[in-house]
């Protein structure tokens, strides 16, 4: 009886897990096959004949190739480094220094950031970057993304910092450690998985972001992949399926690789689960 129950339980587990897996995988299935077909189709089918020629044509578009392997990387990595460092510092301060109203501050900023990263703010942001003389520079894009993503990054990062037992630092204080030393030697190593989560999250957001680079950049040589993908559209404004999917697949691989690497090396998860 117990054996039967155990077997049934295992079977039920696999069935439910398979359903979950299918729910998440099915919408992406087409994207895995379409780039290898010679004809545009919206159906999922094994490509027949199988071809790599779409990738050949994608690589012939130097604008799109540079966008993906140079510009997107510069902008995403630059923002990732800035956000991760600044968010970690800020979260540490919010967690450990006696700053009044810090919870309200954290929430308030996330709230503000959501309207400001929306379309309504694109004009003031354009004007700001223009006055800083940073139109058509990678730096302008990196700064704007950093500002927009920091509040949520700090919010997520605080969860990790809050979960470090205070006793570590308290004993370090007794031993005469400086605030900076404490941050560097105690907090940083412990929150590294958190920095990885925030880093990946930032990278992903910049990697997919269209509006900010579109508003701030002008030279085709600086546009990231999120903008360049539109060079595979027809005059009428619809995608050339064989090429856009091939490019989309290449465009997706870096975020996928980054996630898998971080997950394998550090584990991709929140610590305490971000409490209110």
């Amino acid at each position: 009886m117990r054996v039967v129950k155990h077997v049934l339980g295992r079977v039920a587990f696999y069935v439910v897990a398979a359903v979950f897996a299918a729910v998440f995988a099915l919408p992406l299935l087409w994207l895995v096959f379409a780039p290898f077909g010679s004809r545009a189709t919206l159906s999922v089918a094994l490509p027949d004949p199988f071809t790599l020629s779409n990738f050949g044509r994608v690589f012939a578009n130097t604008f799109a190739v540079r966008a993906l392997f140079q510009n997107s990387i510069i902008q995403a990595v630059g923002t990732m480094i800035l956000v991760t460092l600044l968010a970690t510092l800020a979260a540490y301060a919010l967690s450990r220094a006696p700053i009044r109203g810090r919870d309200v501050l954290s929430y308030g900023l996330v709230l503000f950031s959501s309207i400001v990263t929306g379309t309504a703010a694109m004009v003031p942001i354009f004007l700001l970057i223009f006055n800083l003389g940073l139109i058509d520079t990678h730096m302008g894009v990196i700064l704007v993304f950093t500002g927009g993503l920091l509040p949520a990054a700090i919010f997520i990062m605080r969860d990790f910092v809050d979960s470090i037992p205070r006793s570590y630092e308290e004993s370090a204080l007794v031993a005469g450690a400086s605030p900076w030393g404490m941050f560097r030697d105690i907090a940083l190593p412990i929150v590294r998985p958190g920095m990885m989560v925030v880093g990946v999250w930032t990278f992903v957001n910049v990697w997919g972001g269209f509006l900010v680079p579109f508003i701030l950049l002008r030279s085709p040589t600086k546009m990231p992949a999120a903008v360049a993908i539109y060079s595979f559209y027809t005059e009428g404004g619809t995608p050339i399926i064989t090429l856009t999917t091939a490019y989309a697949l290449l465009y997706t691989l870096p975020v996928l690789a980054l996630y898998l690497f971080v997950n394998w090396k550090y584990g991709f998860r929140f610590f305490g689960g971000i409490k209110s």
């Binding site: 508003i215 030279s219 539109y230």
Partner: peptide, 16 residues
């Protein structure tokens, strides 16, 4: 300067 986006998008950049 070649622009590969839509008409609407080009108009937005012009206006800005």
């Amino acid at each position: 300067n070649e622009f590969g986006g839509t008409d609407d998008a080009l108009k937005q950049q012009y206006a800005l």
